[in-house]
Design a protein around this nucleic acid. Sequence first.
DNA 1: CGTTGGATCTTCT
DNA 2: GAAGATCCAACGC
Length: 199
Amino acid sequence: MKLGLDFYTQPDILKICKQLLGTVLMSNIDGKITGGRIVELEAYRGSVDKASHAFPNKITPRTSTMFENGGVAYVYLCYGIHRLFNIVTNSPGEPDVILIRALQPEVGENHMMERRGIEGGQNTAGMTSGPGKLTAALSIGLEHNNIDLIGDTIWVETDGPDVRDTEIKVSERIGVGYAGEDALLPWRFSIKDNTWVSR
DNA sequence: CGTTGGATCTTCT
DNA sequence: GAAGATCCAACGC
């Protein structure tokens, strides 16, 4: 079942993070349907979080998407090369986003391998295990910034029961050492012992 | 196997 | 002008 607007507009981003683990991120781009189970993600809260582009509630042309109502995508270019996909949550004016860091391929694996340049049935392990990799596999680009996640291009589906708390690993976020003490916030969530988690 | 550096470009200072 | 929510290939051990 596709997640609706009322899911994304919830105020508690950490609760949304836990609920998103185990759901399936889908894309229908270039006539190809691809998707994967979300196994790793991170929370960024622009109001209080130095690691966020929007800290402290700073609106720029780039970050304006983060201030939208929950339920849209925030896509930006990282290191000039990689496109990173985030889900905007909470109500308008609250720059809360969730970075999707890793997927477990579920739908259209052949298309994802082709987009990632992986040959044959071998070496699929790294296909979507990282934020820059999964956008390439799903063909998500900057043109999808601010797109509606309730639509039929990019969306999230529930599939089976919620992931239990005992199956969730909570840790510090990756690659945000520049954020000082905020780099220590336990805002990274992943599914324990899942082989598709990054690094 | 761990570490290193290059690629590449938008954004803000 | 510098740094960045990364990835991968090339090195050295």
